[in-house]
């Protein structure tokens, strides 16, 4: 079984706006179930994803930072013990202009087969990406991503 997945979406916006939407709390809170990232955004800086309750959900480090083209993070889940035990995954965002849109390629690579984190995020990413697209193209995120899910 593969240890990575690739999700690609085309968003009618500019690379600069998409970049801001990927990192700034005022955007991510709207399309990423109220989560936000705490980070200095430079190579080597610690990275944390916080939930609406202020709890650290995921953490890692900025491995590459090249705005508005490429962002690579090491990423470990912090709130599901089995997922945390797997250690760090690697998440890469690539932004490329494509006509009047931007092609966003998200690659998430995992160290272990049958990763618990893989199972957790592989279903979540398409929804988050759809909501990000909706927010940038229509000004409103998808309803399903506006609140942290109750069962998580």
């Amino acid at each position: 079984m593969s240890r990575q997945f690739i999700h690609v979406t085309y968003i009618r916006t500019t690379p600069e706006k998409l970049w801001e939407a990927l990192i700034r709390p005022e955007f991510t809170r709207r399309y990423w179930v109220e989560s936000w990232q705490d980070c200095e955004w430079k190579v080597g800086a610690p990275w944390r994803m916080l939930g609406p309750d202020g709890e650290v959900k995921d953490a890692g480090e900025v491995l590459e930072y090249d705005p508005p083209r490429r962002l690579v993070l090491s990423w470990r889940n912090e709130f599901i013990p089995e997922a945390k035990a797997e250690g760090y995954s690697r998440c890469t965002y690539e932004l490329e202009p494509a006509g009047d849109a931007v092609k966003l390629t998200l690659t998430h690579e995992f160290q272990t087969e049958n990763s618990r984190l893989y199972q957790g995020v592989s279903g979540g990413w398409p929804l988050i990406l759809a909501s990000l697209k909706s927010l940038l193209e229509t000004g409103d995120a998808l309803e399903a991503t506006k609140r942290w899910p109750e069962n998580v």
Binding site: S2, Q4, F5, I6, H7, V8, T9, P126, L127, L129, A130, K133, S134, L142, E143, A144
Partner: peptide
């Protein structure tokens, strides 16, 4: 080659309501 589920998710979002999921 990787399956990219994003367009299929977009189709689902278009017709599946927020409470039906």
């Amino acid at each position: 080659h990787f399956l990219n589920p994003v367009p299929i998710n977009d189709i689902a979002e278009r017709w599946i309501g927020k409470f039906e999921r």
